[in-house]
């Protein structure tokens, strides 16, 4: 059994997690075409280490595709992705992860046949910038810290496949944290969760932020976004048409009209805004 025996271990793990060198992520005119469809249409954004950038926009706006391009899952048609001043556009997905970029997926995606602990250990063993883990103990220490942080410590030995959506989403986040990211990209972390779970996820993301991790967060749920983000970008038809503080966004005419004239404070139910796409 994995037991989180001592808070001391978790503390040492926490030391490891603290980001030593803050990262800057820059997107320069990123575009992605699927055949005739321009899913991402020239997006330029800069994410600094001390901020949480929220990305909003109706379904089909190209948010997930933007993440796919940034993390290397699909190749950009145009533009450049720059991490700490050097381009990572030519790097593979796993290289980008090792350079300090981790993401979660919109669908709760984990390694279903691995246990919770193994999922986290996977991130620790393979996602670190350099394989600087002195040994299994060191890995274990950090893994336990991550499990503790995400509230999964008592589920460490369970197989991930049958977990609930909330646990899967937390695990997906945990294994991302386990890679020791400097930039964390979250694709709808609150989607499909109930209010309590949303609050807990909010707390968790704030904790992660305290370690100096830059965060980009796609979200439909405006309430969460407004509470979390320091800056917001709103996408429509693949392009960012609004960038600013969360409070400004709520008043912006264009944002409100993109959400079909409904109140921005009460965004449309997920999946029900097909007309906006």
């Amino acid at each position: 059994m994995v037991r989180v025996e001592t808070p001391a271990a978790a503390l040492r793990g926490a030391d490891r997690f603290r980001v030593a060198q803050a990262a800057t992520l820059e997107l320069r005119g990123v575009a992605k075409n699927f055949g005739g469809l321009r899913a991402v249409d020239g997006v330029s954004l800069t994410i600094e280490a001390d901020e949480v950038l929220g990305i909003a926009g109706p379904n089909g706006a190209g948010k997930t595709t933007l993440f796919d391009v940034v993390t290397g899952l699909t190749k950009a048609s145009e533009g450049d992705v720059v991490l700490d001043g050097s381009s990572i556009a030519g790097d593979s997905v796993h290289r980008r992860c090792q350079r300090g970029m981790a993401r979660t997926f919109q669908q709760p995606t984990v390694a279903a046949s691995l246990t919770v602990y193994e999922n986290v250990a996977l991130g620790c063993s393979f996602g670190q910038p350099r394989r600087h883990w002195a040994g299994v103990d060191d890995l274990k220490e950090f893994a336990e810290f991550v499990l503790e942080l995400t509230g999964l410590a008592d589920k460490a030995e369970l197989v991930a496949g049958p977990l609930t959506v909330f646990d899967k989403k937390r695990l997906m986040l945990a294994s991302a944290i386990a890679t020791g990211p400097r930039v964390l990209l979250l694709d709808e972390p609150f989607g499909g969760l109930n209010p309590d779970e949303i609050d807990e996820t909010l707390r968790l993301i704030r904790r992660v932020r305290e370690f100096g991790v830059a965060i980009v967060c796609i979200e439909h749920v405006m309430r969460a976004l407004v509470q979390l983000a320091t800056r917001v970008a709103v996408m429509h038809h693949g392009a960012v048409f609004f960038e600013g503080a969360p409070q400004e966004m709520m008043q912006d005419e264009r944002v409100i009209s993109v959400y079909l004239g409904r109140s921005a404070a009460k965004p449309p139910a997920r999946g029900g805004d097909g007309g906006a796409a």
Binding site: F34, T64, L73, T74, F105, Q106, Q107, T109
Partner: peptide
């Protein structure tokens, strides 16, 4: 294949 189109992973 010659005529087949790649379908990319969606998650």
């Amino acid at each position: 294949g010659l005529a087949g189109r790649p379908s990319e992973a969606r998650l």
